[in-house]
Amino acid sequence: MILYKTIALKFGHFYDRERPTSMTGLDGQPVPSEDFRQHWKSVLGDLASARIYLLDHNAANYLDSLRMGVQGMPWEDRPESDIQGYVREVDFPRDLIWVEYDDRKLWEDRVARRVSTQTEEELNNRRQRGFLFDNRSPDKLTVCLFSALSDTMFLDAPLVLEIQKDEDGRPDFRNTSWQPNKTVIAGLMRAGFLRDAASAREYFEEYKGHVTYEMVIGFMLFAALAAREDDLVPQETPSLSNAQVKTARKFGKTWMTETLRSHVTIRIGPAAELHMTEQKARLRFEETQAVGRATPTEHWVAEHERHYANGKVVRVRAHKRGQSPSRELPARVVGPKKHD
């Protein structure tokens, strides 16, 4: 599935056909029905204006590995200022951006990289995720997260992360806040996701954790695109086929053709493939090292004398010692390659 298309089709249908009723919010106050229609219209407008990036699983894995290089592994105690200082200098390719990836595949790759562990049940609960970055305001950057539940159902963003900007127009991660979306929260309450205040707090804390940790992948994407190297290969594709466009126009679904124009699929290029190959080789090398005493890499031992306790002296000729490096391992894993 493509999550952004699912959202557009669902909200477009709702806006065309549905007549929502008022609901009760978490604070006990009614949320007017018109607020729901305005929310659907707002999301459709944002998706229509946004640059849509769809990461294939290799691209998401690559960007996540780059993030780990800056932020550190989960078990490393690096200060948050490291990653914050990096992402605040990243330039956005557009003011409004949607970044989507397959969360299950990303976590499968994280497990393969020994970054985390996941049970099969936990993996089965992960599907497409999409982040909407809104950098249009001169005063703040906002980020919200949408998550797929199935091919036709998804979770809207109950909270919007607001990151204030400093005098240079860069995001200031020391000055952030979470703004509730009352219409989404009311819908989650009616659907049974928020049964009481305790479950709401738990749900919101989990959502905040997902947003603040995973949104960094978007910043890594923006940085990689700005570098204009051959690690990523973007390809723009129409989001609707010609037949779908004709059908939408025939039935007057203008929101469909206006919202689902095109998206950019991001795949990895030669440099990223080399990076991931080296990373896998390094992981195998480190695992081998951890099994037991590591055999030293092949090297020359200079001629020398060996003195024994009984007074005997033996001259040892120059010789090679250690194990020849595997040709499959990248040079920087085992040291410089031998030059004949």
Rank of each mutant, 00 (worst) to 15 (best):
N242W: 10
N124V: 00
R201F: 00
D27V: 04
E100V: 07
A294H: 14
N175K: 14
A50K: 04
S81P: 01
S137L: 08
K246I: 13
R315L: 10
G169F: 11
K140W: 15
A271P: 01
L161T: 11
P171H: 06
D134S: 10
E34M: 02
E287A: 13
K338H: 14
R261L: 03
A224M: 01
F11Q: 08
R104M: 09
T183R: 02
V31R: 01
M220A: 11
D172E: 06
S42N: 10
M189R: 07
I83N: 03
P93Y: 07
E286C: 06
D95K: 15
R170T: 01
S116T: 15
R113K: 09
A248K: 03
E89D: 13
V333E: 01
R174D: 07
L274D: 15
A48G: 06
Q279W: 14
K105R: 15
L149F: 01
P296S: 08
T295I: 12
Y62K: 05
F146K: 06
G218Y: 04
G311K: 02
R249D: 10
R195A: 04
F173K: 03
R293D: 10
R19M: 09
E328M: 10
V70Q: 09
M23T: 00
R67G: 12
F131K: 04
A331Q: 05
W75L: 12
I268D: 01
G69V: 08
L232R: 03
L26C: 00
L159S: 05
P32N: 02
Y101V: 04
L232Q: 04
A157D: 14
R190P: 00
